[in-house]
């Protein structure tokens, strides 16, 4: 079942599951695959995020929406510690992945990023062949013992990303020779090749045309069954289509978070209402 054909039913399912989650109790860590508590981010003296707390459950898509510069991408980059690579950036607060604080000294950011994959706004395949793009991650993490295994990982990753049929006969062609939408799916294949548990997507469709966007959205819905997906998006329609949970960010803080259909049909905060009805942002 694809979400495009019948989005309502999946929303209903989500809502039920959400209720179940809500009734599970107050233990936040037990609820989310990824669970952020009071996360603040500083770039030098400037504070970009203010005490953000958010649960991102497994096998669901959590959408982060909000106007430009509201901190949703900053928050996303905390989850795989990409902010570490920015000089002068400081992250406070707790982010728990499977009961483990990812900012703990014992957690190696390089290994963390293998568990938390990321897809960027602009497709950024390596300037190498399609095969090499997907094979790079498994190779540096030593996932494959020989060439056949590596080829198997590449094939299954491309299949899961829905790109295999289009590129099977030209795996040695440069990754950059693909179209924008294909490149973005290649990048998703690259991310899932290292068997992550969480996939972060930073406006993955904003550089794509509507048809390519539809394909990516379809793919996101397929991937939901295996991963915890967090997606930043500017398109509220997209958030409504692909996500089960939504968090609305404003001025570096979470205004409202909850089940997607709840947020879109019955927002509790007036700012959320104003934003989703297009009155600002």
């Amino acid at each position: 079942m694809t979400p495009m054909s019948n989005p309502r039913s999946s929303f209903k399912m989500t809502a039920q599951r959400d209720d179940a989650l809500a009734s599970a109790g107050t233990s936040r860590a037990a609820v989310g695959k990824v669970s952020a508590t009071d996360v603040s981010v500083f770039y030098g003296d400037k504070q970009a995020l203010f005490d953000v707390s958010l649960d991102m459950p497994d096998r669901m898509v959590t959408a982060l929406i909000g106007p430009s510069g509201c901190g949703k991408s900053t928050f996303l980059r905390c989850i795989n510690r990409m902010n570490d690579t920015i000089p002068g950036a400081r992250v406070d607060g707790k982010i728990i992945l499977d009961g483990e604080d990812i900012n703990d000294r014992k957690v190696d950011p390089v290994l963390l990023r293998a568990r938390v994959g990321m897809v960027f706004q602009k497709p950024n395949p390596f300037p190498k062949s399609i095969f090499e793009n997907v094979a790079y991650g498994p190779r540096i993490h030593g996932f494959a013992d020989n060439k056949t295994e590596l080829a198997d990982i590449v094939e299954s990753s491309l299949k899961r990303a829905g790109l295999w049929k289009e590129v099977a006969d030209r795996l040695q062609a440069p990754g950059t020779s693909l179209s924008g939408g294909q490149q973005q799916r290649l990048v998703i294949a690259r991310a899932i090749a290292v068997s992550p548990e969480v996939i972060l997507m930073d406006e993955p469709c904003s550089a794509l045309d509507p048809i390519a966007t539809a394909k990516i959205e379809e793919l996101i819905d397929d991937l939901r069954s295996q991963y915890c997906i967090v997606i930043v998006t500017h398109s509220m329609a997209q958030a409504a289509r692909v996500s089960q949970r939504t968090a609305f960010f404003h001025m570096g803080a979470v205004v409202e978070a909850g089940a997607t259909d709840e947020i879109f049909t019955n927002p509790r905060d007036t700012r959320t209402q104003d934003y989703i009805t297009g009155r600002f942002g």
Binding site: N80, V110, R113, G117, M118, K122, N124, Y136, A191
Partner: peptide, 11 residues
């Protein structure tokens, strides 16, 4: 973006 891509797959 190339650096980010590599870092994001755990390089």
């Amino acid at each position: 973006s190339i650096r980010e891509a590599a870092l994001a797959v755990g390089a």
